[in-house]
Design a protein around this nucleic acid. Structure first.
Lengths: 290, 290
DNA sequence: CATGATGTCTGACTTTAGTCAGGTATCGCG
DNA sequence: CGCGATACCTGACTAAAGTCAGACATCATG
C-alpha cells in the first residue's frame, strides 16, 4: 500500500469516481453521452467534423449519426467547407449555444465541487496543475504570441512575483528595463508562450535591439512544470526564431540567485561575458553566437 | 483560463484521458469491461456477491449474468454461504488468479507510466496523495488496528520523521518513552489508523497506564491530509474508545514546536497541567476529564 | 477528363450495459 | 409450521455504442 504504484492507483480510483460523476450529470440533460460530447466539442470551438471525430475517437458512421441527431434537435448546423466541399463544418445554432452553456455550467459546478474545501484550495490547485502538466507533457506546445496578450501578461506577472520571492532585496519591475512590447514582436523579436492545454506554463522573450545583437528576456517556467526540460525547449525555440529573423548574436543577463538558469545557459553553449548594461538586478551576463 | 475552475477542468481533462487509457488496456484481454471489473473486485478480496454488486453499482440481474459468464470461462467459482444459503460467495479459480494477475500487471504498468518522469516522481506522488485524500475525504475511515501492524508502523515512521524535521535538536525515538504495544491494545488501550482507501493518512494511540489515567500518544496526520479536520476526528475517536474502556482521565504531552497540536487540544476541552513525566522532548502537558 | 484517393453518409448488424417483472430457495420470527 | 422478507436467478426487453460494407460527391493529379 505504501509503494509508489499503489499510491498512483489510489489516486486513479479517487479521480475516476470524482470525474465520472460529471458523465452522470451530463446524462441528466436527456441526451446520450456521445451526442453530448460532440455538442461540447463543437461548443469549444472545434468545427471541422473530421477533427472532432479524431479528437473523440469515433467511427465515421457513428459520428455522422450523432451529428444528424444534434441537427434534428436543432442544436447545430452543418455546411460543406468552402475550400473543400467533401469536408463538413459544424456550428452551434442559438439553441445549441444555450444547451452548450448548460453543459458548461454543469462542468463548472463539478469543478467547484472538487475545490469545496477552502482550507486546501490553493494546495489542491497547485497539485492539480502539477499533475496536469506532467500528464500532458507530450502535448505542451510553444506558441508565438503577442507580449501584451492575456497569456503573456499572466506569465510575466508570475515571473515578476517569483523574482520578488527569490531576490533577497525583492524585485520592482519599474527599476528594471521593461522591454518595449514591439521589440518582442516580429520582425524585431518574438515572444513565446508554452501552453499545456489552455494553461500558460512558461515563456521566453526575444528582444531586438539596435546594437547588433538580440536579447533573451523573461525566461520563466511555472513551478508545476519544472523537471520537464521546458526551459531548454523554450530556449531552443527562441534561438530558432532568432535564426529565422537573421539574428546572429544573442545576449542575456541573469542573477546568481537563479542557479538553475545559469546552469542551463552554461550547458547549452552560452559563455559568460562582462556586464553589458546597467540594469540593477542582473549580476551574470552571457552571450551566444548562432 | 487562469481562474480556479479552468484549472480544475484542465486537470479533469488531463486525468480522464490518462486514466481512460486503463479501460482500453483492460478491453485488450477480450472481455467486456463489466466482467473485468467484477473479476478484479473478487481478486481484490471482495467475495460477498451483494457487496460487489453494491460496490460496482450493478443491478442484481446484470451482476448475476456477469458472474455466470466468468464461471463459464472457468475463472471463478461461487458457493452459497454457510451461515446463510441465500447469499453467495465468489472466489477465483487457479485460472482466475492468473487472469487477475494479468489485469494487475496492466494496472501497475499504467501507474508506472504516469510516474515515468523520474525528476518529478516525488513531487508527483505527493500531489496525487493530496488530491486523492481531498477527493475521498468523506470516505476516510478510522480503523482500530494493532500498533505493530504494517499500517501502524508506517504512520509511526512518518510521525518520527516529521518530529525529526520539526524539532531543532532532531528526534531520536530511543530517547523517548516508546510505548509498549500491548498498552495500546484492548483492553488497556487502543491504536487508531485513519485510512483513505488503502493509504494510512493519520493515527493516534490511546495508551493505558497503571496511574489512574490513560495517555494520548502519537497523534499524526499526513501532510496530504491536513486541512480536513482529521486530527479532531482522530481525537474524538480516541476519546470514545477511552470511554468504552471505562477510562475517565486522559493526559498527553506535546511540544511547542507543534503549535497546531496545542491549538487543537486547547479548543477541545483540554487544560494545561504541570509536567507529569521526565521525557526529554515534550514541554507542554495537558489533561482532560471525560 | 479519367482515375484513384478522400470525406461523409446510410443501412444492416453486433455487443454491451442496463431495466424490469416474475420465479425460486432460504431465512427469521411469531 | 406458515408467512413475509431477503438474496439470487432467469427471461424479455431497450438504449447506446460501435463495426462494417458500400454509395456518393468531391478533390488532386497526370
Amino acid at each position: 500500500m505504501l509503494d509508489p504504484v499503489a499510491r498512483v492507483r489510489r489516486f486513479n480510483r479517487a479521480v475516476t469516481s470524482a470525474v465520472g460523476a460529471l458523465d452522470g450529470s451530463f446524462l441528466g440533460r436527456g441526451r446520450p453521452l456521445g451526442a453530448a460530447r460532440v455538442l461540447n466539442a463543437i461548443g469549444h470551438g472545434r468545427s471541422d467534423v473530421a477533427e472532432i471525430r479524431d479528437y473523440l475517437g469515433l467511427d465515421s458512421g457513428l459520428m455522422s449519426r450523432l451529428l444528424r441527431s444534434l441537427e434534428d434537435e436543432g442544436l447545430i448546423e452543418t455546411a460543406a467547407r468552402e475550400d473543400d466541399a467533401r469536408r463538413r463544418m459544424a456550428k452551434l445554432t442559438r439553441a445549441g449555444r444555450r444547451e452548450f452553456a448548460a453543459y458548461e455550467a454543469l462542468s463548472n459546478a463539478q469543478a467547484e465541487g472538487l475545490l469545496a474545501q477552502p482550507s486546501q484550495r490553493e494546495a489542491l490547485l497547485a497539485a492539480m496543475d502539477l499533475i496536469a502538466s506532467a500528464l500532458t507533457r507530450e502535448r505542451i506546445s510553444l506558441d508565438e504570441m503577442d507580449p501584451r496578450g492575456e497569456e503573456a501578461r499572466y506569465c510575466l506577472g508570475e515571473y515578476y512575483a517569483e523574482l520578488g520571492r527569490r531576490f533577497s532585496q525583492g524585485f520592482d519591475v519599474s527599476l528594471s528595463r521593461d522591454p518595449d512590447a514591439k521589440d518582442m514582436r516580429r520582425p524585431r523579436g518574438a515572444f513565446l508562450v508554452a501552453m499545456s492545454d489552455t494553461l500558460p506554463i512558461g515563456c521566453v522573450g526575444l528582444k531586438g535591439t539596435d546594437h547588433g545583437y538580440a536579447e533573451i528576456k523573461r525566461l520563466w517556467v511555472a513551478p508545476a512544470a519544472r523537471g520537464l526540460r521546458l526551459g531548454r525547449r523554450l530556449m531552443d525555440a527562441a534561438e530558432s526564431a532568432a535564426r529565422e529573423l537573421g539574428i546572429t548574436l544573442l545576449r542575456l543577463d541573469t542573477n546568481s540567485a537563479l542557479p538553475e538558469a545559469g546552469q542551463l545557459y552554461r550547458s547549452t553553449g552560452w559563455r559568460e561575458i562582462p556586464r553589458f548594461n546597467d540594469d540593477p538586478y542582473p549580476d551574470l551576463f552571457f552571450e551566444k553566437r548562432l
